[in-house]
């Protein structure tokens, strides 16, 4: 099944979802589509003002452009997701997940969609990490 991950660029979540037999939906695949599209030239990500406008579906015009742009890009993924794993409090979330306000609205939108959802906190020690991995395995194993 297709599993949307938050942070959408996380190495750990991408790896775990794939390792446990599902297809992770990540920012990277979208970026690939955008950078391989040679007809658009808005480097480095090829996000265009039109993409940002598409973000108006999720947030109003008074919301900063960076938030609308991120939502527009991610919506292509979460619209096709069968399940979601959200990991909150990731200690370092940069680049596409660098805006805390976007993450707030993204998580809210995901919770509204009613699909199977696993919410985790970033582990603070070995014990929590072990629990986290077991939770992910359990959640993904239950997706049929």
């Amino acid at each position: 099944m297709k599993v949307f991950i938050v942070p959408p660029n996380s190495l750990i979540l991408f790896d775990l979802v794939e390792r446990f037999g599902h297809e992770p939906l990540s920012t990277m695949q979208l970026i690939q589509e955008m950078v391989d599209n040679l007809e658009i030239d808005s480097p480095p990500l090829n996000v265009t003002p039109d993409d940002v406008k598409r973000g108006l579906k999720y947030a109003g015009i008074e919301v900063p452009s960076g938030i609308r742009g991120r939502l527009a890009v991610w919506s292509e993924l979460f619209e096709q997701a069968d399940a979601t794993i959200i990991m909150e409090d990731a200690p370092y979330a940069f680049g596409c997940v660098g805006c805390h306000r976007t993450n707030l609205i993204l998580n809210y939108l995901l919770r509204q969609r009613g699909m199977p959802l696993l919410e985790l906190r970033y582990p603070l020690d070995d014990e929590e990490a072990m629990t986290m991995v077991l939770q992910v395995k359990g959640f993904l194993g239950g997706l049929k």
Partner: peptide, 23 residues
């Protein structure tokens, strides 16, 4: 910026390994 994220996650991979061993 994504490189910094990778660097941060790399740092904690040992813990994820412990979790995978539990699995």
């Amino acid at each position: 910026p994504g490189f910094t994220q990778l660097e941060a996650e790399w740092h904690d991979l040992g813990r994820i390994e412990l979790g995978l061993d539990c699995c």
